[in-house]
Amino acid sequence: MAEQEAACAPHSGLSPAPAKAAGRVRGVSRWSRAWRKFKRNKLAMAGATVAIFLTIVAIFAPWIAPYPYSESHWDHAWEPPSWKFPFGTDELGRDMLSRQIWALRNALIIALMAEVVTFVVGSAIGATAGYFGGKIDNFLMRFTDIMFAFPSLLFNIVLVAALGRGLLVIFIAIGVTRWTGLARLVRGQVLALKQMEYVLAARASGATGWDIILRYLLPNAAGPIIVTLALGIPANMMVESALSLIGMGVAPPMPSWGALIATYQNAVLSYPHLLLFPAATFAITLLSFTYLGDGLSEALDPKD
């Protein structure tokens, strides 16, 4: 800055700051309002409780699972549920409870990391397109259209087939096919928000483009973004299971719900626990995350 002190006359007449009160009261943010609304929604709270429980189980899987996921108990093969093996055992005598805990862990890691990829790619492309507009917008959105039109499961299969069946490859593969929806959403939000008076006001007080994107546009679009991301978690789990179902998911002996369900669908009459337990735990996981997402979308809805 050139003439910092020259012409900006110092303020002399401003009244002195009043003495600070003893206690400082914090403002009620929209987050605490949303939380209050969320708490009233019983289904969402149930979903959130189960989802948190499942997440803790997934994080501590190595300590919680009673047996290693690939340990065989040869004298206990094909056993129905018992005290020793609460969900029974499979054809190799492996504990099905432990395998499902590990399946949960894999599904959650993949779903969450794929959402991280979705968030980074989707919001970066959407925000850039919406903010700059014009040719950049046109180019990025046509690219998004192409990615959207691509059959995503096929794309996942190709990627996994080419790069291997590691966790990293799978979540990146899912992430790069699922960001298009978020990119469109963020672009729409940014287009609407950048017309807001407060964005102009920020610009008029010297905000840079980054200040505006990071402090004004994205936070104001946070509600819909969070909802989309939350509802994306169960969707990603479905994709992961679909990949496992056709044998393109995590490599065995690492368990996956899709693989468990696919393997034992023929054994449903003779050994029903091998299909029913994975199907039930999978369904509960999906439902809990879906209700959590629905609850969030209701709590963060600005039209209340």
């Binding site: 800055m1 012409a7 900006c8 929209r30 807001m196 008076e197 407060y198 102009l200 006001a201 920020a202 610009r203 008029a204 007080s205 010297g206 905000a207 402090r215 004004y216 936070p219 104001n220 946070a222």
Partner: peptide, 19 residues
């Protein structure tokens, strides 16, 4: 902007960032 020349806008209801 904002340093040497500052602006006050017409509608205070929409000129502040709600977040």
């Amino acid at each position: 902007r904002g340093h040497c020349i500052a602006m006050i806008f017409q509608d205070p209801m929409t000129s502040l960032n709600p977040t």
